[in-house]
Design a protein around this nucleic acid. Structure first.
Lengths: 338, 338
DNA sequence: CGGAGTGTTTAAAGCGCTTCAAGTCCAAGT
DNA sequence: ACTTGGACTTGAAGCGCTTTAAACACTCCG
């Protein structure tokens, strides 16, 4: 295994100083076109690859953005991919750190910090707000998809979850539904917001809300089984439409309903939340509320860049994006009033 | 934003040389218990965090393993998580790089190499074998879940895919099935192996194989829609059992069958492949073939460590693990012969 | 009491790159 | 002919840490 080609090797091959070679290879202004061409050629020929660690150490800037993800989540994955591409366009690089069951968020954040990240992006962090504020004092921090009470430190970019469930209720109401139930998602800011949005939207229309509790605090919440259990409760007194906390719950619900011989959307309309790939599948065709991931990551990156390159100091305004409603095949006018 | 605490600061605070502090903080032998305690205390008090880039640069070793994943794949995610934990136990760290639609495998590998990774793990790389061989000449390389013809360079750790489909056929045959169809997964080493396994297993039992082609080369292969299409073909001449290339295909199949009023497993048994979380869901209960991810990652790490710490030079033996069969609710004896 | 031996500590030399002050060179200006 | 300024180039000083060999302080032994 041959020794790695260094900058000095390239410089020596061309007969210029390492300093010049460095400038050329980073596209910095200074070197003449002739030098530039020769250095580039040599670098190419020798197969030179700059040493990341060395440049990080030498340059004051690292142009690295740390992204903390739970690699098992499809949504996180999507954000990662888009942030990666968006960052690249702005000359930044993204370093990923993943939480595992053993390795908590704190550990993962440390790894990121140790890697000289200049800013951190956390997706729906569960850490208590004071912890986030403290972290924000150390490094520019963007909190994605999580509401904070009067955020002072971190920048917040999120979707208006309340508006999302309201959108769902509105859609159903326009179709003629009045008996619209909601399957809850348990505790957490997001679940709260979605529930509130539902309750408010129902209230505004003078409709009686009906919230089916999520699976008890013991089991996991917002999964297919939540939907299956909810279906059991629903059967006693069937509404004409149901809004579920998320798509997985909705899918569980759908499955349980199918087994009971209740046809969707004829007997019952169902709306999910998240617009997961799952929901888009032709044979599921779930009407669902979604958030614009691309806009979300773009805003997050903007916030980072505003601090890093723009020199913004205080926290920016909380960025709240509007959710959208993807109408598919699980909603229709109620049978009786049609 | 206060300047970062450096090793020198810690050393100065205690009144020892940076060299000693360095030794203590890395748990290297040398420093006395007294010094050790004082340095540790100071580091703690000052909130010292070693600079990753600097230590990488200074130490000859980086103890970094690069893992290339497609962050959208659940399987990759699982591997990432497990490799992360396993590596930690051996004193290695994992750096993740993700391919995006824009950013191919090659680019991602470069990033990893630039980060001073000492070894690379690729999951089911699609690159042609010569490329992999070339890469393996540069850096210790482990190829996970992909068969190579007479691998000379990279270490290979995979599951015997042929044995997997054979397992499925065997299970069905024992239940009394003889008309067992297979839904193909298109091109690629994995799809080939699974198909071959099916064909061979059928042949050995004197059964007539029936392979339903995967969706044409235009569309994506091995998805739910593959299963849906296959179901349409199946209806003309219903076998008593079907083995699908993977779980997603099986789920599509299941869904389409349900719509046609064909009940599983009464009318038709279905076996998937991958044992995805999806398959394990209570309301799916798919009988499926799975691979032992934990063993897979453990072997991969062993291979890496054998080269890095053990000084192994040549390629190790190809590691082929046995798949397992998870029998759930989609398989039963055929109606007639029961 | 000198020196071998043991256990600790540290000075100093980098790791490979960036950066910036300080050149060098040459054409234009006076 | 002699400065002036612009366009390039480069020497040298780090970035924050590791590592090696050498220095140091003892204790133990003959």
């Amino acid at each position: 295994m041959a020794r790695r080609v260094r900058l000095d090797d390239v410089a020596a091959a061309v007969g210029v100083s390492p300093a010049s070679a460095s400038l050329v290879l980073r596209g910095a202004p200074g070197p003449s076109a002739a030098t530039r061409a020769r250095v580039l050629e040599a670098a190419q020929r020798l197969g030179y690859r700059p040493d990341r660690a060395a440049s990080l150490l030498a340059s004051r800037r690292s142009r690295l953005i740390g992204l903390l993800i739970d690699v098992r989540s499809a949504f996180h994955a999507e954000v990662a991919e888009q942030l990666q591409d968006a960052a690249e366009d702005r000359g930044y690089d993204v370093v990923l750190s993943t939480v595992t069951r053993r390795r908590g968020q704190a550990r993962a954040v440390e790894t990121l910090l140790d890697s000289r990240c200049e800013a951190l992006v956390l997706i729906g962090p569960e850490a208590p707000q004071p912890d986030l504020e403290r972290l924000a004092a150390t490094v520019p921090l963007v909190v994605l998809c999580r509401r904070l009470e009067a955020a002072t430190g971190p920048d917040v970019v999120r979707t208006a979850d309340q508006a999302g469930t309201a959108l769902a209720v509105d859609h159903l109401h326009r179709l003629g539904h009045t008996a619209i139930a909601y399957v809850d998602g348990g505790i957490g800011t997001i679940a709260e917001d979605r529930r509130d949005g539902y309750l408010r939207a129902m209230g505004e229309r003078g409709l009686a809300p009906r919230v089916l509790p999520s699976t008890g605090p013991t089991g996991p919440t917002g999964t297919e089984s939540t939907g299956i259990e909810a279906a059991a409760h629903l059967l006693d007194d069937l509404p004409t439409a149901v809004v579920a906390f998320n798509d997985r719950t909705a899918v569980g619900l759908l499955d349980a309903l199918a087994r009971k011989g209740i046809s969707v959307p004829e007997d019952l309309s169902v709306v999910g939340y998240d617009d997961q790939p799952l929901a888009r599948l032709a044979h599921v065709g779930l009407t669902t509320v979604g958030q614009d991931t691309e806009a979300l990551t773009a805003r997050a990156l903007d916030a980072v860049v505003a601090r890093l390159d723009g020199g913004r100091e205080g926290p920016g305004p909380e960025q709240v994006l509007d959710p959208y409603l993807a109408v598919r095949r699980t909603t229709a006018p109620p049978r009786v009033s049609a």
